[in-house]
Amino acid sequence: MLIEVQDITKTYIMGDSEVHALRGVSLGVEHGEYVAVMGPSGSGKSTLMHLIGCLDRPSTGHYTLDGTPVEDLDDVALSALRNRKISFVFQSFNLISQLSVAENVEVPLIYRGTPREEREQLAAQKLASVGLAHRRNHRPNELSGGECQRVAIARALVSDPDIVLADEPTGNLDTKTGEEVMAILAELNDSGTTIVMVTHDIVKAKHAKRLVQMSDGKIDRQLVGEEKDRIINQFEAMTAVPAA
């Protein structure tokens, strides 16, 4: 098991009120899986992603990443995990505006201590693989949303991670560019990378092998195989009628 989340809760203290973002979530993800997480806004999807991504620590419960209990790790060890094992793709791209496209892609390698030449080479390679080699020296604000997200994906891939965590990666994109991004992720999964993706669009979950439905800080149900496909097809049919 690559990701093993056991009965995790996460409570935020806001002033004198408590926000229970997660209320006991257990989830296991195998190597090479593609899991889509769905659920209404505020149901705790992002919080779960942050915990899986070692950006945050659970209030209670256990999280084991590739056999390592994460609770005991210090900042340096957690940072190393984020740097080597895990990559994030965010809804809002989160490129660093002061850096060029190529430099943005290089950032994870800097924290790994990769020599400059190798960094530049790897970054150029990943940019080419998302079809943006010609944009290398541009600034993020000179790119379209779809291009930005492809840069972000190149940045996620440059560190050759085990897991890609994508939190609504198409949320800020139009349908067509969204589909391009989904295709890249699917291709990535085919080559063996584990993907956990949050999406509010059930159709986008088509590529995923498992569908996790959350609400109110809990996992309601998990769908796999035919059951998953049936639900998706149903939904597609439902939305297709008014459009036709």
């Binding site: 950006l55 990559s87 490129l95």
Partner: peptide, 16 residues
């Protein structure tokens, strides 16, 4: 702030 968050997500330690 945002940049700091991004860098942390990409593997920057507090120290760095």
């Amino acid at each position: 702030t945002k940049e700091i968050g991004v860098r942390r997500a990409l593997g920057a330690t507090e120290d760095s």
